[in-house]
Computed example of a mutant assay.
Amino acid sequence: MSIDESLSCFGALALEVSPRVADADGPVQFELGNETLERAAAAPLLEPILIDLQRLLPGADSLDLGLAMASFDPAELLRPGWPVFTTLADLLIGAPGERAQARVVSLSASEGRMPAAGLQPDRSLRGGPLRLLPFVLRGGAEQVNAVGRQMESELMEKGMAAAATALAAQSAFGLQLEHARYLSLHDLCAMTAMQYEHAGLAPVWRLLEAALFAPASAEWVEEAGEPPALYAGGQVGIGIQSPEQLLPAAEAAGISAANMHRLRQLRASQWRAVLAAHGVAAQCIELTGADTEGELRAALQRH
């Protein structure tokens, strides 16, 4: 709770991008589109979003709304401390306007630059199948809690954006869209967890979940066929066992220990890249003994 006894709840308009028509043998690709909107381009999108929120979340029109007219990769919103949302909330708090009535603050770009560095999308994360426009609703605790409960109970099932909103977003961002829908922050976490599980990255989500929701905690991950990993002190250590240590597992799998070691190195690098996209520092650590958790903990304490 802040000094003015107000609270915030976080959500996003999710734009599901249509895949490009490409060679059947090639990877699926998605249009890059516009990552930020200038004020003139953003204006036609604001009104349909306001209408949607009033329809989906009765009572939301009594809260201050901060909306970033920029599209982010999900990894950018799911970072420790929620930096995109907190930057947006800070700008909403400091925006001019009559505090006795609900304010709408739509933040757009000027010559491609958003008004705060924390709202500038990462160009290296463009081109994914899902782009997100974050929003913050802020007001008195009772009102925010009531709207927050609606967001959690309604948006996942009933949060489809109106056709006018989808068309306005498609035109503004230069993207061909499959769907446009609203998500709460927890909806986004649940969806990302499911996607990572389907992609064989469930251990990475466990590490990320600890970083997001319990940053002072420690999370130990050790699953068959995967590198051991530890989240502690705000960072992750990913262990890579030596070929000698991997020999029993390699023989059981019918491959050489050297080849298994190389595969574990590749896997650890993949995990590190995913965590880095979420703003979680990770390092790959060559292990020497049997106490893998102890080695990783000691290595993290040295950094």
Rank of each mutant, 00 (worst) to 15 (best):
S2G: 11
S2P: 02
S8A: 13
S8C: 12
S18R: 14
R20I: 09
V21R: 14
V28G: 10
A41V: 10
A42H: 03
L46D: 05
A60D: 06
D64H: 05
S71H: 11
F72C: 08
D73K: 08
E76A: 04
L77Y: 06
T86V: 05
T87I: 01
L88E: 03
E98Y: 02
E98Q: 03
R99K: 11
G112C: 08
A116W: 00
A116V: 00
D122T: 10
G127A: 10
G127K: 06
R131N: 12
F135Q: 09
R138A: 00
A141K: 14
E142W: 14
A146M: 13
V147G: 08
R149A: 15
S153N: 15
M156V: 14
A162D: 09
A169R: 01
Q170S: 13
A172T: 05
Q176C: 14
H186Y: 15
A190G: 14
M194H: 13
Q195P: 08
L201E: 05
P203E: 02
L208T: 01
E209D: 12
A210L: 05
A210F: 05
F213R: 05
S217F: 06
W220T: 00
A224T: 10
P228Q: 02
Y231W: 08
G239C: 04
G239L: 03
S242C: 13
P243N: 05
L247Q: 13
A252M: 09
A252R: 12
I255C: 07
S256L: 05
A258C: 08
R272I: 01
G279R: 02
T292D: 08
T292H: 14
T292G: 09
E293V: 11
R297Q: 14
